[in-house]
Computed example of a mutant assay.
Amino acid sequence: MEQDQQAGHPSEENALTEQAAAWFLRMQQSDTNDVEQKAFEAWLAENEAHRTEYQQYVQLWQTLDHLEQKPRKKSRSTVTWIVTLAILFSSLHWLTRHEEMITTAIGEHQQIILADGTTIDINTDSTLRLALYGFTRKVTLERGEALFRIGDERLRSFEVHAGNGILRDIGTEFNVIKEEGNVTVAVLEGAVEVGIDHQNDTVRLLHGGEQLTYSAYDLSEISSTDKETVTAWRKSRLIFRETPLEEVIRQINRYHSRPVRLGDPQLNTLRVSGEFNSADRAGLVQALITLLPLRASELDSVTLLTYEK
Rank of each mutant, 00 (worst) to 15 (best):
H109S: 05
G209A: 10
G144T: 03
I196F: 08
L64Q: 05
Q199W: 06
E145W: 00
Q56W: 03
R271I: 07
S157K: 13
I113H: 08
S30E: 13
E12D: 15
G151D: 04
E173A: 14
S90M: 07
L130T: 11
T140M: 11
H161D: 14
W233R: 06
I87Y: 02
Q56M: 10
E180Q: 15
V302P: 08
T52H: 02
V272C: 03
E180H: 15
V272P: 00
T172R: 09
E2A: 11
L262F: 01
L304E: 10
R149P: 00
I239K: 05
A39S: 13
I82A: 09
R295A: 06
E247W: 08
Q69C: 08
G163M: 08
Q111Y: 01
E13F: 03
L291Q: 14
I249A: 11
F89D: 13
W23G: 05
A162P: 09
E179G: 07
L262M: 12
T78Q: 10
V139A: 00
E247K: 14
H256F: 12
G274F: 03
D31R: 07
Q56A: 13
D116T: 04
T172C: 04
V260D: 03
L206S: 07
D218C: 06
E153P: 04
L92K: 12
T84L: 12
I166K: 10
E153C: 07
E108G: 03
L288C: 08
N14S: 15
I166M: 13
L205Y: 07
T127R: 13
L219W: 06
K73Y: 12
M1C: 09
I252A: 08
Q59P: 05
W23R: 06
E153D: 15
L16H: 00
E153N: 11
F148C: 01
T306H: 03
K38I: 14
Q29R: 15
R250G: 15
L114C: 02
Q37I: 11
T225W: 03
L147K: 00
V230F: 07
E247D: 14
E12W: 09
L114Q: 02
W43F: 10
N33I: 09
L64T: 06
T52L: 02
R254K: 14
